[in-house]
């Protein structure tokens, strides 16, 4: 089961992202409708478009070679889902003043949970299973780490987080809670 974490600045720019592979099994409740198909984020939907946009310049001689063939999840799709989830997150944000938004959105196999800091940073987590407590704990950890990063006077709300300490601690927390 994989998790995708994005820390988004108030202008929707990702400042940090993390992909975490959890050892927990994926709760597979796929519909018979989709029985013989891969999950959405691994399928090559609109492959022509991808191929055209990606491989038309440099890789012309290996047409199609640059297209991702099966295998891992399409990072682009994951990002699109996280980005699309912002619609609902912003909606909820304006109505309620909770920081932890549990499973605010779902898209295909992904559930989106979010955490909004008082500074309008959004932590968006894409996950497949249910793990409310773990995710809440995880978000609190990330928040604490984020605040510690922001203590740095040279860090603005729009600076990318490149600290390896931050990265390691977030990963540790992810291993612990997710």
């Amino acid at each position: 089961m994989s998790h995708h974490l994005f820390l988004l600045s108030p202008s929707d720019t990702p400042l940090y992202s993390l992909t975490h592979q959890s050892t927990k099994p994926v709760p597979s409740v796929t519909s018979p409708l989709a029985s013989n198909l891969p999950t959405w984020s691994t399928s090559a939907f609109a492959g022509t478009l991808t191929a055209l946009s990606g491989a038309s310049s440099a890789t012309q001689h290996t047409t199609g070679g640059a297209v991702r063939v099966g295998g891992g999840q399409d990072r682009h799709v994951i990002q699109m889902i996280a980005n699309a989830g912002l619609d609902v997150i912003e909606d909820v944000m304006r109505k309620e003043n909770m920081m932890y938004l549990k499973s605010v959105d779902k898209f295909n196999e992904w559930t989106i949970s979010a955490f909004i800091t008082p500074g309008n940073m959004k932590f968006v987590l894409l996950h497949e299973g249910k793990n409310d407590d773990g995710i809440r704990q995880f978000f609190m950890d990330v928040w604490e780490l984020y605040v510690k990063t922001m203590v740095n006077p040279f860090h603005t709300a729009h600076t990318r987080i490149r600290s390896s300490v931050f990265d390691n601690r977030v990963r540790a927390s992810a291993r612990k809670h997710l």
Binding site: L33, S43, F45, N108
Partner: peptide, 17 residues
């Protein structure tokens, strides 16, 4: 969001069929 949640059900791998 509830309307959106209903609508989201439509999107899935079966679109490929």
């Amino acid at each position: 969001s509830s309307i959106s949640a209903v609508l989201t059900q439509m999107h899935g791998p079966w679109l490929l069929h």
